[in-house]
Design a protein around this nucleic acid. Structure first.
Lengths: 161, 161
DNA sequence: CAAATTTATGTAGACCACTACATATATTTT
DNA sequence: AAAATATATGTAGTGGTCTACATAAATTTG
């Protein structure tokens, strides 16, 4: 690999490196769907898999389960509904709630999508060495981070408490 | 930590988790600068550190050293120049090239910024256990990824070669 | 039971990254 | 030297995430 200044920045470059790698994977995924002639976006699999498991969920429920903000979910499901992969109904007893569920088009296409996602899983798996426990380390990192975020950690180190 | 569906997705959820964590750190950093009353963005430290080391660089040179696309660099340095932290000159022998360098305002504020960045480095460091070699594992992952991207890995697994 | 609070969805605006295309200037080729 | 190619910067448009604010409905409180 060629020279990479970000890697010289140590821990401070962590966020940049994580985003850069993630973005690269997402862009590659988008390119893949385009080449395969599929009209879906890389992050939609989150919603497909979620609704496959839970059948029906509201915006807030999805945001909570995925740890995303609710506007992000609205954007995502809005596009998926427009693409015909989702349908929605208003809750009978609480008219604020909107339940989303997979459409017939979604059910029809899911087998092919699952095939691709399984292949993707295998592909990503091979990025790691046999004994790598990267996913566990990442989980540990997520847990640590959820307990004290970047701002608070930095202010603590600065002595600005 | 509460329930997190993304963590159930295994390797396929990797990109989402990396981005989610990175975004959380960046947003926290933005909040931090806001609270400290500083008019800089989280990712600007890349350019500050880069120009501190190399004194003077063009858009293309920065993009290459950081492994970013050149439009991303243009956006970043454009805002930094507008904020008064950068100045630029056109190359004498090649009028296409534009060299960027730190302004007096930048030099003046850098000591304080470095203080904060050092604190941030220490803060992030403490996210990991003593013997964690996460950064090395991340580098290995970056190297693997640079050799074959998500699309190619998935298509290989699908047998679509 | 009316008022205050909470909850759910939706909108606006900021920031970040990318690809594709455009333009101007250098360099190389014929 | 003209034409073709390569390089550097810039613009347009897409996609994604977030926070802050807005609106409407449900729930809780006095």
């Amino acid at each position: 690999m060629q020279y990479d200044f970000v890697n010289e920045l140590g821990y401070l470059g962590l966020a940049v490196r994580l985003k850069r790698l993630s973005d690269a994977m997402v862009h590659s995924g988008r390119q893949m769907y385009k080449e395969l002639g599929l009209d879906i976006e890389p992050n939609w699999f989150l919603i497909f898999r979620l609704l496959k498991k839970y059948n029906q969920l509201s915006v807030t429920e999805m945001a909570s389960k995925l740890h995303f903000s609710h506007p992000s979910i609205i954007t995502m499901v809005g596009k998926m509904e427009k693409a015909g992969y989702l349908n929605s109904t208003i809750d009978k007893s609480d008219s604020r709630k909107k339940h989303f569920f997979l459409s017939a088009k979604a059910e029809e296409n899911l087998p092919r999508f699952e095939e691709i996602w399984d292949a993707g899983t295998e592909g990503v798996k091979k990025l790691f060495s046999e004994d790598s426990n990267f996913l566990n380390l990442l989980e540990a990192l997520e847990v640590q981070y959820s307990q004290k975020d970047f701002k608070d950690r930095t202010l603590t180190e600065l002595g600005n408490e």
